[in-house]
């Protein structure tokens, strides 16, 4: 169970104006062996809604929507669908689908893109 303090730290990093917070969330949060921490870090990165943070949770294997933990992946997808402004997320998803990434990553991005289209 993640402590209240840890929860607040991740939330503060998600709301921080310094772009270095994205690096911290990526390096420390999404690489953490604890599922709950990865889940919170993915949520914070998606809520930032900037290209750099969204690329981390969409394009990287084992992070965000491609996480091996179903709960982390589902939370990330849910958070993407809950975004008010989906333009940036759609751009990153399109880039991922048209890129030469691994087939699994492209397939996941395509599925999420379809969900995003239906959810509008």
């Amino acid at each position: 169970m993640v402590s209240r303090k840890l929860n607040n730290i991740i939330e503060a990093l998600g709301k921080h104006t310094d772009s270095d917070s994205v690096r911290v969330l990526n390096e420390v949060g999404t690489n953490c062996p604890i599922d709950e921490v990865r889940e919170l870090a993915a949520k914070a990165l998606i809520r930032k809604n900037v290209k750099e943070s969204l690329e981390i949770v969409i394009k990287n294997k084992g992070k965000g929507i491609n996480d091996l933990s179903a709960s982390v992946a589902m939370t990330a997808i849910n958070e993407l669908l809950a975004l008010k402004d989906k333009n940036c997320a759609n751009t990153v998803l399109d880039e991922t689908i048209n890129s030469e990434c691994e087939k699994e990553i492209i397939d996941t991005a395509r599925s999420v893109k379809a969900l995003m289209t239906f959810s509008i």
Partner: peptide
């Protein structure tokens, strides 16, 4: 340790706190 008060701290300090909590 509320999120609004932590937000005012530098990222480096938050990183250390994050690591120690993990």
């Amino acid at each position: 340790n509320t999120s609004s008060s932590l937000q005012k701290k530098p990222v480096g300090e938050l990183e250390d706190m994050f690591k120690s909590e993990i």
